[in-house]
Every structure is written in structure tokens, then in C-alpha cells.
Write a protein that binds this DNA or RNA. Structure first.
Length: 398
DNA sequence: TCTCTATCTATAGACGTG
DNA sequence: TCACGTCC
DNA sequence: ACATATAGATAGAG
């Protein structure tokens, strides 16, 4: 998912656009969270052996557990979350890409894909995915966060695109997701791995939230937004496969040369050692990022209210058999934390920490090696302790 | 030899307890 | 503080 | 979604 190799491209060519910082740096900020991604993560991770946690009816509840505690922690950190939920899957992901762009070739393409199991596989995966996370599960998540006094936004289509809309219009400071195509959708700030810096247990693992800045990245890559979107498509995205032999580096140089996806693709087609997906509907692909189906920011209202204690208990304890004492404790924490979150952010308080530049990946590795040797006690960067702790963890697991 | 891509492989949540 | 077991 | 997705490491192509 996302854009193939984009993280590396940014790390190598626009390291200024990447900042590693403590979750505390988001104090007082509103953040638009890609709820589906968050829920997927929880479903994967929270299990007893092979099975998820379930209620007495056998319905999965792993995601509720995580969502409950994560929301509490965010509020405790003074961060104002907005959970944004996916709507219907975009038509282009269902293999209908061609249908919209070149209706004639749709059938042909489907057949071809069945043979070489390119996009079709992706489509199947997507369908399976939708089946596993039931509408009831999503509904329960919305009920929970709303009961906790946190807004839940239902996107008409992709949550990523909706998050970007909220950020573009100042309703949120950043999108929280692991998916790099948030940037392609035009969010100016993207925070990845937020959860690493949120829960007490995750913080120990040494990971830090990473903030990407679109404006800086465009400046340092010397690309206009539309050229950046073209670049992302060329690298391979959710809507079209990449081209074999063309990675981020080649894609960037192609964009530098041609300044235009259509021209770059034409150039590749002329060299017959590249297999360009056919059809390659440039305009329709661009439209997926520039005109995604979203609810306009002006039609979205966000309210952070007082937790509805009874509603939380009904959902968690009565309907899903969570431990009453634990839930009560959580609610207590939530109520207490609300005082903190009502404080106003004072920007001057948050000095730009000159973060250990997450950027130049190669440089980082070198630095780590060097640091290991000299053991100088400069700033204790998360990167340093990370290595240690992770090694320990690895041994412990085995 | 070097740069870039393709391929392989390890890892995965949050909390309380002892 | 860490590693582990449990959460539903 | 541990019957997967991702990122970092490394092998290998050009």
C-alpha cells in the first residue's frame, strides 16, 4: 500500500522534510487519524495465540481494547484526535480503473490481469480485507470514540483523502497514518508511528513518531505539487502498478527530465525494455489524488466533548464483556486528562529540538556505527538506545 | 565499480505483575 | 526495570 | 492483516 519507495526517496533527497520528535510535540494539536489503519494494526497485533479477543457472541473486540487505551493516552498528552473512517472503497482499487478511463479496455484488462495476477490480486486482497472488518466492528469503533468525547468523521471514500482535506483547511494540524500516500493526497503534515510515542510500553521500544512536511519536501525535491503526484504514480501506487525497472530514483530523474507523467510514460514506452501497464490512464490516475471523493471541510463539524460514561460502559462492559474496573479506571483517567487537554498550546514552549535527522538513511547507519565506537555522550538520540533495546528484545523473544 | 532495483527476512498492541 | 502473561 | 504488510538488509542486474 502507499507509494513504493517514497520514504527512502525523501530520506535520501529531502531529509529536511523528516523530523523525529516526541509525541509531546503534538500537545494542543488536532490530528486527523486514519482510523482504519489504526484498527487494522490492532487486529493484527492483539490476539491470544491465533485468535483475536472476542465478546461472548464470538465477535472480535481486539480493536476496541486498543482504541480505548490509545484514545485515553492521546487525551492525556493533550492531543486532540479526530478519527476518520473509510467509506466505500475507491472504484479504481476494484480493478475498475480502466473502466472509468477507457471503458472499452476494461474487460480486456481484467482478463489480462487474471493471467498475470497483477492488480487482480490486489483487488482480491482488498475485497477480503473489507470482509474481515465488518461494518459492525467499524460502527462499534465510532460509538466508542464518540462516547469518549472524540469526533469520528465518516469519509465518503478513502480516509486518507479526507484527512488531507481536514489538514488543508486547518481543521487539523496533521494526518496520522502509516500510509505515505497521505502526502500525495496533499496533507501538509504526516505523522507516522505516532503510537510508538504514545503508549508507555511502546515508548520503551525506542521508536519515535516521525513527522513529514510536504512543503519542505516539495521545496527540497524541487517539484511542484502536480509533479510530485506524477512522481508518486510513476513509482507505483494503490491505483496502478509500478513499472518494472523503474524505482524511485529513476522515477525522479524521469520527472526532472519530462516534468510530466504522460511524457515520461511515453518515453518509457518507446524503450521496449520496459513494460508499461496498459492502459495507463494518466488523467484518471491524477484525478484520484487531486479530486478524491471527500466531504468538504466546511461541511465537517468537530466537537470534543465530555465523555459519556454510561455509553462507554454499555458498549465495553455490557455489550463486550470488558472488565468493569478497568473501564472505570480508564474513564477516570480520561476525565482527569481533559483538564490538561483544555490548556492552550504555547508554541514558544516547544523549541525546535534539532531532531536526530531521520533523513539520510545511510548517514544514520554510519553515525550509529561511529557512535558505537566512540561512545561519546552527546545528545542521547533515540536512534542510539534503539539498537540496544531492540537487540535485547530479539534475544528475549528467542 | 557503483547505483538502483528486486528479493529476502524479521517483526507486529497495551497493560499490570512478579 | 524487564520479560511475560493476559486482556475478551 | 500473523492464511499479511512493512521496512531494512542484501543480493544481483545493468
Amino acid at each position: 500500500m502507499g507509494i513504493k519507495g517514497l520514504t527512502k526517496l525523501i530520506g535520501d533527497n529531502a531529509p529536511r522534510a523528516i523530523k523525529q520528535q516526541d509525541a509531546k510535540a503534538l500537545f494542543g494539536r488536532k490530528v486527523a487519524i486514519d482510523a482504519s489503519m489504526c484498527i487494522y494494526q490492532l487486529l493484527v497485533a492483539v490476539r491470544m495465540g491465533a485468535d483475536n479477543l472476542t465478546n461472548e457472541d464470538g465477535m472480535v473486540t481486539s480493536h476496541l481494547n486498543g482504541l480505548f487505551y490509545r484514545t485515553i493516552r492521546l487525551i492525556e498528552l493533550g492531543i486532540k484526535p479526530i478519527f476518520v473512517f473509510d467509506g466505500k472503497p475507491p472504484s479504481m482499487k476494484g480493478g475498475e480503473l480502466a473502466k472509468r478511463a477507457e471503458a472499452k479496455k476494461a474487460a480486456e484488462e481484467a482478463a489480462k490481469k487474471a493471467e498475470e495476477d497483477g492488480n487482480l490480486e490486489l483487488a482480491e486482497k482488498f475485497a477480503r480485507r473489507v470482509n474481515r472488518i465488518t461494518p459492525e466492528m467499524m460502527a462499534a469503533c465510532k460509538t466508542l470514540v464518540r462516547a469518549m468525547g472524540v469526533p469520528a468523521v465518516e469519509a465518503p471514500c478513502e480516509a486518507e483523502a479526507q484527512c488531507a482535506e481536514l489538514v488543508k483547511h486547518g481543521l487539523a494540524y496533521a494526518t496520522v497514518s502509516e500510509d505515505m500516500d497521505s502526502l500525495t493526497f496533499g496533507t501538509n503534515k504526516l505523522v507516522r508511528q505516532l503510537w510508538s510515542g504514545v503508549s508507555a510500553s511502546a515508548q520503551k521500544k525506542g521508536h519515535t513518531p516521525t513527522e513529514f512536511s510536504l512543503d519542505v519536501l516539495l521545496e527540497d525535491l524541487d517539484l511542484k505539487m502536480h509533479e510530485f503526484v506524477d512522481l508518486c504514480i510513476l513509482c507505483g501506487c494503490d491505483y496502478v502498478d509500478g513499472i518494472k525497472g523503474v524505482g524511485v530514483v529513476k522515477a525522479l530523474s524521469l520527472m526532472r527530465e519530462h516534468k510530466d507523467l504522460a511524457k515520461a510514460v511515453e518515453a518509457l514506452k518507446r524503450l521496449d525494455r520496459y513494460e508499461v501497464p496498459d492502459p495507463y490512464p494518466v488523467d484518471a490516475l491524477r484525478e484520484m489524488f487531486f479530486k478524491p471523493e471527500i466531504t468538504a471541510a466546511k461541511d465537517v463539524s468537530l466537537k470534543w466533548g465530555k465523555p459519556d460514561e454510561a455509553a462507554i460502559k454499555k458498549l465495553m462492559v455490557e455489550d463486550n464483556q470488558f472488565d468493569e474496573t478497568k473501564i472505570a479506571n480508564g474513564i477516570k483517567r480520561l476525565l482527569l486528562a481533559r483538564k490538561t487537554s483544555n490548556q492552550v498550546r504555547v508554541d514558544s514552549f516547544f523549541k525546535p529540538k534539532s531532531a536526530p535527522n531521520a533523513g539520510a538513511l545511510a548517514a544514520k547507519r554510519k553515525a550509529a556505527a561511529l557512535a558505537a565506537k566512540s561512545k561519546g555522550k552527546k545528545r542521547r538520540s533515540p536512534g542510539l538506545s534503539k539498537g540496544k533495546i531492540m537487540k535485547k528484545g530479539k534475544l528475549g523473544n528467542k
